[in-house]
Every structure is written in C-alpha cells, then in structure tokens.
Amino acid sequence: MALRLSRLLAAVPRSWTGRRGSDEIGLNGPRIAVIGNCQAKGVAEAVRILAPGARVRLIPMSTLGRGGQRLDAFAATLKACDHVFSQPFPAGFFPEGGSDALRERLPRMRLFPSIVFTAFHPDAVYVGDLTSVARVKLVPSPLGTYHSAITLFGFLKGLPPERIVGLFREAVFSQLGYLDAWDLAAADLIASSRAIGFDLSDDLLRWSRGGQFMHNINHPRLTVLGDIAARLLREAGIAPRPVAVEAYAPDALLDDAIWPVYPPVATLYGVAGSTVFKRRQRRGAAPETIGLDAFVAESFAIYQAQPRETLTCHRIEHWAASPEIRTLFETA
C-alpha cells in the first residue's frame, strides 16, 4: 500500500503535494491541468497569462498511458487539480477508454476541440496508416508529415517533377475544389466542436475576419489558442485578463512546419500568398525555407524510397476513382 501511494505521489507535480517547484514560487492560484496535442502547449501558456497565479500543468497527449499507466491511476493524479481542460482523445492510449471514460471519473473536466481547418491549405494531406491514432504510421515528408496531394498523385501517375510543378496554378486548383474549400472546412470544424459542447461558430467568424489564422491544416495561430483558453477559464468561473495573449507570448507553433497559402487561394481570402514552405526547426535555430521546385523534388526522393503500398491517402483514393481528375493530371 505504501509503495502504491508513493508511486501516486510521484506522478503529481511537486507543488500539488505541498512542495513548490522553482517555476511556481509565489503562485497560489487554481491548479489547472491541460491535456492535448501540440495545440495544448499554446493553450497552457495562454492560461498562465490570462489567469495570474494559476499553477498550470501541461500533459501532452503523446505521454498518455506511457509505461502501462492505467486510466484510473491517471485520473487519480488529476484529482488534485481544481480544473482539467482536455482535448478529446480516443481509446487506445488507455485500455479502459479515451477522454469520455476519463470524464466519467472527473465530472468537472472540460473538453475543448482540436482545431483542424483546411481551407487555407487544401493541398496538405497526411500519407500512411491512420487507422490507430495512438500508433500512427505516417510517411515522412520534407515538412515532417505534411504532403502535397498534387505532388503525390502526380508521382503515382508517373509524371515528372517539372510537370507536377506546372500543376500549381489557378485552373487546376479550381478543378480540384481548392477554391471552394471554405464551407466544408468550416462545417467540419463547427460540427466537431459542437459534438463536444464547445461550439466554435462565433469564434470562427471572428477569426476569419482577422485574416489567416492557421499555420497549416492543424496548427492554429496563437490568437486562436488564446481565445480558447479565455473561454475555458470563463466557463470554469475564472475571469481571464482582458489581454491579447499573442502580445505577451511567443507562438510556439511557428517553430513547426509552415505550409504556404498558394497565391490563387490567398487572393480568394485576402491574405498573403506564396509557394515557399518552412521546415520544422529546433528551438533557437534559424528558419529553413524551400521553394516549390525543391519541395516537389524532395517529395519524389522520399516516395521513391517508400514501398508503394505505404503511399495511401483518402484524397488520392478519391482522385484515382474520378475520371475527370485522372484526365486533368494526364493532360495538364
């Protein structure tokens, strides 16, 4: 029993067991845990700014269930929190279930959505096995795991790189639906947010009025994460500071891959456009950018080294079944 208790206490932040960590000296506000994917770090940082004195613990989704931890044990470590904010996570991290099962054990836990919005970057896709979210097997790309659907489909159709580069033009984008992507992207985001009781319809309208609010399909800018943090605090009964988080904290997701808004898409939405991609970078390192020609060439080198059966993607399967799109690539 004593051993079990010591393990439990070891999993709780020091300041939550009566001892104070060096980064929490002087903090006596609510204890808040933030659970989620790469977006959760920005939410946690925003909570620290918006709720002075809050003792915030970030729990990356990738660490859930590590070392064979069970859901009951994880829930027990969170009982010391005054508030738990979590993005939905599926069964697979814990044998007992996902975020719904955790919420049953922590009724006060509040869910917040994972932001995915593809309208600014309709060409960006994942490639590989997505059947198990906890153990995703993705094909690498020049930008980590983000691929160009046009580049991949052109490769699979046997087109040379120079012909694929020539496909990045307005007429092709129009035929592929890239210039009509907003309504579907908005509907998907709003539906997923309403499904967990965190309707983003008003927020999306406000974000869109401010211009481009995504770095890529699933990395929102810090202003978005600040808005989510402020709303979580208000719904938890904590009045957030009336400040813009992005004015006080760096946007950590800028260190990750940045997908450009292609010029025809950018013109449509009134934002800056380019075909310059930015790689994921180490903290403190200078950003490294590559142009479209280099991106296509590097993608080809990766695809040629991959078993062809691993180059799977729902978008590509849809295009392969469309005579119009096949003809577009064959004659362009």
Rank of each mutant, 00 (worst) to 15 (best):
S192Y: 10
W207G: 00
K157L: 12
A286K: 14
E170G: 12
V47C: 10
G42E: 00
G166N: 03
A257D: 14
L268A: 00
F277S: 11
L138P: 07
L253C: 06
Q175K: 15
R135M: 05
T118C: 04
P323H: 13
R103T: 11
C313Q: 13
R135G: 08
V133F: 04
A321P: 00
A101L: 07
T331P: 10
I238N: 03
G291P: 07
A44R: 06
A186W: 02
F198N: 15
P107H: 14
A76K: 05
S299P: 03
K79D: 07
Q281N: 13
Q304F: 00
N218A: 07
A285Q: 06
F295V: 08
A297L: 11
L253W: 04
E324G: 04
D129Y: 05
G53D: 09
F94L: 09
L106H: 09
S201V: 11
S15Y: 02
A321S: 14
F168Q: 08
R169Q: 15
T63E: 06
L205F: 07
R31L: 11
L159H: 01
L254H: 13
Q281F: 03
P140C: 04
A266G: 09
S208F: 04
D202Q: 07
F198E: 15
F173T: 00
L200Y: 14
N37R: 00
H83D: 09
T131H: 12
G284W: 02
V271F: 02
H215T: 08
D202P: 01
D180R: 05
D251V: 09
G197D: 12
F89D: 10
H314L: 06
R70P: 05
H83K: 11
A185L: 04
